[in-house]
Amino acid sequence: MSIAVIILALAIGCYAVAVLEGWAVHGRLSLTRPATSALALLGREQILPRTSDRLFFEVGPVLLLVAGLLSVAVIPLAPGLIITDLAIGALFLNAALAYVLVALIMAGWGPNGAYGMVGGWRFLGQFIAYAMLIVMPITAVAMRAESLSTTQIVLSQAALWNIAYQPIGFVLFVIAAMGVAWLPPIDLPTGGGDLAGGVEAEYTGARLAVLRLARLVIIVALAGATVTFYLGGWLGPWLPGWVWTALKTLAVAAGMLALGSRLPRLREAKYLELSWKLGITLALANIFLVGVIALVVPI
């Protein structure tokens, strides 16, 4: 039952994010565009590039979708409303998101096209930049919650949301999350002006539809993870818990998309440099600060 509810909520969330993305990129808010686009994509030809690695080419989008859905599985919509409340939920989320990298490299390498290949390998660099900044803030969150279970993590924020308890971690996590979902300005593997579509460039028709759907699922998953780890999940007054989760998730997604359309694309070397010189130092400082606070203050 709860699985069906969450899948439905995810579908609605993806649609809403697609609408928001249309607004951020094309400057128009249209409620019907994602539906017509998806339907139109189904009717277009699916082209298989010559001399492609068929296995990589086909598996890329599917693996991406699987990775997205598995990470959604550990995000609680409300108390008890979660697909699998794993004891190692936060770690599992991390593991599932690692496949985003694999999927994108496969999708980039598969078609044997220059833009795609550069895009795929660029994403590997991007991964090296964001990976630590996903893991380290989550560690600090787990320190406070004394658990890796996502439900426990939400409950640990009853007195004070983590966004106030560990603001450095929040900022680092959101930026890293934008990297995972290759949202502008960190859309290095696909940037239109840089790589003319990059890893997405050779996908057409239904394969492109699956790829786009997978990306939406990943955006929702990451926005949901941000809400779970930092914004108190379902916690909130007056409204039922699932409404709070949904509202907060959409707000985070909208924030990330709006931020993206106002910033110029980050260069790979710069992103790596910022992440490793500034990001990791801050993330370690965050762990240390949270460690001290957690020992001194009982909340």
Partner: peptide, 22 residues
């Protein structure tokens, strides 16, 4: 079925030893 490269037909394979500068 040739990968699209901005209006120029590029049939050369691109699978090479890629220089990952990171």
């Amino acid at each position: 079925d040739v990968p699209a490269t901005a209006g120029t037909l590029a049939r050369d394979p691109v699978w090479v030893r890629y220089h990952a500068k990171y």
